[in-house]
């Protein structure tokens, strides 16, 4: 069964449609990259799948059931800028929030949850920073804390909104190998990505999005100059400098 089925989803802000009739199935156990220009609706797509914003029409299923009944199977990494990093709390506490969905009402995170959270911090190389106030972490470290929090969610499908923004090359490699590890465990990961140079290297599948679905499929089939032109439209010259021929699939 597919981890995620999106059928005919349309989303509008103030009656202005930002996503139109999006339909696709996500294959299981793959790393899927989502690319598209700013304002293409990439974040909106994730929010619509997670039920964070109302959809004008359409339907989303996680393993064949509604998102509401499958929350525990889904992990989420929001865009880093979406929260206030001056909030008085430390890294471990933020990662523990990934456990809240499993804990239930009126209960506190226990020893087991703390152990899971510490393990997740360890996975992203942030164990020494567990007690560090989050405002005192660098952008890349904050991003890793977010990733650790998603790991602590212990999900089977992950949605990550630009996890590579503001991280250095070494961290980016570390995150990618972590994502590959998740994949090896049979998990499915959807990642919003901006760097077209690395799409072919990182992702098994690619979703090209610009208000509508332009293409979805194995990267070697859909990540073509032709599809990129359709996605990025008039900004072709930008594409020429961004993506030299070796990074895309020749069609």
């Amino acid at each position: 069964m597919n981890p995620v089925n999106v059928s005919n989803v349309t989303v509008a802000y103030d009656r202005k449609p930002v996503l139109q009739e999006i339909t696709f199935d996500m294959p299981e156990g793959k790393l899927i990259g989502v690319v598209g220009p700013n304002g293409a609706g990439k974040s909106t797509l994730i929010k619509a799948i997670l039920g964070l914003i109302p959809t004008a029409s359409g339907n989303v299923e996680i393993y064949g059931k509604s998102y509401k009944s499958q929350r525990k199977l889904v992990g989420y990494v929001p865009q880093r800028g979406s929260v206030d990093w001056d909030f008085p709390t430390n890294a471990l506490d933020v990662v523990l929030m990934g456990r809240y969905g499993h804990i239930g009402w009126f209960r506190r995170p226990g020893k087991k949850d703390t152990a899971i959270a510490l393990q997740a911090l360890d996975k992203v190389g942030m164990k020494e920073y567990a007690n560090r106030q989050i405002s005192q972490l660098s952008g890349g470290q904050q991003q890793r804390v977010f990733l650790a929090r998603a790991l602590a969610q212990d999900a089977t499908v992950y949605f990550m909104d630009e996890p590579f923004v503001g991280v250095d090359a070494a961290t980016e490699k570390a995150i990618i190998s972590l994502l590959n590890e998740l994949k090896a465990q049979g998990k499915t990961v959807l990642v919003v990505h901006h760097d077209l140079q690395t799409v072919k290297e990182y992702f098994d599948w690619t979703l090209l999005l610009n208000k509508r679905k332009i293409a979805l499929g194995p990267t070697e089939e859909v990540f073509t100059i032709d599809n990129l032109q359709k996605t990025y439209g008039g900004r072709l010259s930008f594409l020429d400098t961004q993506v030299d021929a070796s990074h895309v699939v020749q069609s």
């Binding site: 989420y76 979406s82 929260v83 929030m97």
Partner: peptide
């Protein structure tokens, strides 16, 4: 914990129900 998470990260909070 509900007040804390919905103050810090309302998006994740509603995603986890």
């Amino acid at each position: 914990k509900e007040i804390k998470i919905s103050s810090f990260d309302p998006a994740l909070a509603s995603a986890i129900g």
